[in-house]
Every structure is written in structure tokens, then in C-alpha cells.
Design a protein around this nucleic acid. Structure first.
Lengths: 230, 230
DNA sequence: ACCTGAACACCGTTCAAGT
DNA sequence: ACCTGAACACCGTTCAAGT
């Protein structure tokens, strides 16, 4: 009998290692040093085993990386459904964003391929339930969640939590050196523009804008009498 | 006299190469094979020179990569300002998105560090002009552009233009194998959910949602009599 | 002045061998 | 059965040497 499509390597268990131990340590390493800092050799050394031992648990580095993100996705704790659909959606997005900020390498890894583990899909499923109950049709609900997904992952992938003061100074001086006549709109808002380039404060304000947009869409849909499909 | 901070390597010019030629070929390679497919050795071979020759034009691979994105940013053709602020903003976002889709490695590279070339900043400046004239204050204008920026780059970074039929089939079967009782909201919208995972059609619909949200924000601001700052 | 091969310290992974 | 060193085909970059 051939193994089912989902079956991966089996886990030998003599050195006290397991797929989970290895994946969790890999995630830790990637979060600390970036995805390019995660190497099989360094990971093995950190676990106190030979490099090739890892290949007893994962067939390749790619498979290990997938397991690391799956591990991160498990940490999403679905919030209870309290309040109107906006509050419910905001709570879900905030929770996913919290986990992404705790494991920024997950966003980096997601750029390679979608995460299809049960833990990750539970969040999507939760969102579809909220949006469906709110009155969005299937296509609109899927599109709405996709928009929020891109916003969450984009925020984490393109907005560092913080940045060395040296970098911030370089940004200011590079932008500040632009010709003042052509670049007046940007230059006169330079501190505000720079401020949006780091940190998570920005995130929740942008989320509210998107929720406003979704609400407008829903209202228009209801007015048109074009109720939820299915 | 020490060189100004912006000064980079000078360009020897005997083999017909220039910083621009090298950077443009690097972008081409990265777009074709992904950022990890861009290596100094392969690039040199493609240009018909020795690997070390490239270091006469760029001090490091990082500097070369920066130049490649700068080169991509130059291709943004700022649209004329026609129509209301929504139309103007939509035209700008569509143009940046077009260039990003033509050079998807630029989004990948932007995840490493911001692009501060004149070409890239021209787009930001254009946006600040549109938003300022529309009545957004400096902080709100910066926040609005940041939201659109994250959406544009996130869309390209996390949404492949297309995907091998084999991958799509695997996605469907992985999601379809979830327990039906817990995952009914997702499973009953499976085709719609899968459809949002590739392609650019999605993009413009999401953009309209964001613009609706920004319009709501602007309306609320005006009503409160809290006019633009500065 | 410009270009570049050899070499060094890294990678992921195969293969054959250890216990 | 489980683990792993040596080896292979790659990296980016330094250094010393070619012309």
C-alpha cells in the first residue's frame, strides 16, 4: 500500500528528537536570524546532533520550513465570537497579526507557498463563518478575507518592528536630499511618512479603514437587495 | 575629501558594461528565476564576464540588488492627475501594481529594506500630493498611502500570477480533506476561496474596498470640522 | 587601470559507512 | 535501526596576480 499523499517522513526517536522539536527550533532560529540564517548545519549544531540526522525527520529543508510555519499557525487562538461582525473580524485579525509578529519568519515563508495546515485553515474558516453570518455572499466573503490576509502578511513582511537609529537617520537624509520643488508634498510630511515605515501602531488604524470599506460594500449589497448567495 | 554618503562604486567601462547594464540584467534574472536564482556567478556568466568583474561595478551583492529595484522603480510612469482624488489614486496604484507584476522580484527585495531611489519616492510624493489636495491631513495621508503600499506589495508578494495545475489540485485536496463539520463555512466556499489565491483580478476589487474606507474616513473628518493639518 | 582565477568559508544534499 | 562523516556541487567574497 502506497502512503497517503499527506504522509511525510517518519520520526526516529532515539536522540530525544521529534519532528515537533526540530520544527520548533527551526522556527526559533528563523525568527532570530531571518530565514537565510536558518541552515541545516546551524540547526543541527543547536540541537546537538549531526547535520544529516535532520534528514531522518524531514526529507528536505523545504519540508522542514513548511513544518515550522505549521507550528507557528498552531499558536493562533481563535477568539470567541462576541459583538457584531466588525468586532469579531477585528479580534480574529488582531490575533493572527499577533502570532505573525511573534514569528515574522512565517510571513517570509508564506511568500514561497501557501500554508495549508489545519491550524492555518482554521483561521480562514473562522473568517468565512463570521463574514457569511454578516451577510456577505461566498465570493465577497472570500474576497474580503483575502484582502485582510494580504494586509496582515504585507504589514509584517514590509514593516519592521523597529530599525537601528542609523537606518532611520539614513532614510531621513536620503529623502531630505530630494529636490524641494518637485518633492514638496512628501518633504512637508517627512516625519509622518517616516513614522509609518516601522512598528505595529499603524496596523490597527489601517484595519479600521478596511473594515469601513467592507461595511460600505455590505450596505450597498443589502440596499440592492442582492442577498448572500447559496 | 571623503565621498558623499550616496556615492557608490565607480563604473569601469572597458568591456561595454555599466552599472545600469548589470543591474538591469540582474533584475531580469531575479524576475525569471526568483531572488535565490540570482547569483553573482550566473549573472557574470550571462553577461559573458568573470564573476569578480561584477565587483568593479558593485561593492556587494546587496548593493547590486538595491540597484536592480531602483531600476524597476524607474519604470513607474506617473499618471496624469485626472478626475477626483479616488480616480487619481486608483490610477497611481494601478501603475505601481503593473510595474510590480512585471518585476515581482522587486516586491521580494523590498522585504529586505525600503527602496529610497528617486523613482520610487516619486510615487510616494505623487500620492501625498493627491491625498493632501483631497483634504487628508499629513498623518492621515501618510497612513493612507502606507495602507495602499502594504496592499500593493503584499498582493504581489503573496499572490502568484498563476500556479501549476498540480499545485492547485493539491490545494483543493488538502482543504477538501478537512473535517466537514468543523470546516463547513470554508468548505462550502472552496472554489471561491481557491480562486482568490492566484491572479491579479482580485486586486482591483480589494483596492475599491480600501478606497471606500478612505472616503468614509475623509467624510468623517470633514464633518468633525477637523481640517487638514499644516 | 581594468579584469579575473584561485582560494576560503560557507550552503543543501547524496552516499556510503559507522554503531 | 538509527545516526553521521566525507564528498559533491554550489554560494559570496578576499586576495593576489594577471594584462
Amino acid at each position: 500500500m502506497t502512503p497517503a499523499p499527506g504522509t511525510r517522513s517518519k520520526s526516529p526517536a532515539v536522540s530525544g528528537l521529534s519532528r515537533e522539536t526540530v520544527a520548533s527550533k527551526a522556527l526559533e532560529l528563523a525568527d532570530r536570524d531571518g530565514l537565510e540564517g536558518l541552515t541545516m548545519r546551524r540547526l543541527a549544531a543547536e540541537l546537538g546532533v549531526g547535520t544529516m540526522t535532520l534528514y531522518g525527520y524531514f526529507r528536505s529543508k523545504d519540508e522542514l520550513i513548511d513544518a515550522a510555519t505549521d507550528f507557528a499557525a498552531e499558536q493562533i487562538a481563535l477568539p470567541e465570537r462576541r459583538g457584531d461582525w466588525r468586532e469579531q473580524l477585528r479580534a480574529l485579525v488582531a490575533e493572527v497579526h499577533r502570532v505573525l509578529r511573534a514569528h515574522p519568519s512565517a510571513a517570509q515563508i508564506r511568500a514561497r507557498a501557501p500554508i495549508l495546515s489545519t491550524g492555518a485553515l482554521r483561521a480562514t474558516n473562522h473568517a468565512m463563518a463570521i463574514l457569511g453570518d454578516a451577510g456577505f455572499g461566498k465570493a465577497d466573503a472570500a474576497a474580503a478575507w483575502r484582502l485582510l490576509f494580504v494586509y496582515m502578511f504585507g504589514s509584517v513582511a514590509f514593516t519592521p518592528e523597529s530599525v537601528p537609529e542609523e537606518s532611520a537617520r539614513e532614510w531621513r537624509s536620503r529623502i531630505g536630499a530630494l529636490p524641494p520643488d518637485e518633492f514638496d508634498p512628501l518633504l512637508s510630511a517627512l516625519p509622518e511618512a517616516i513614522a509609518t515605515m516601522t512598528g505595529s501602531e499603524q496596523f490597527h488604524a489601517g484595519l479600521d479603514v478596511i473594515l469601513d470599506g467592507l461595511e460600505a460594500r455590505l450596505a450597498r449589497r443589502s440596499t440592492a437587495g442582492d442577498g448572500p448567495a447559496g
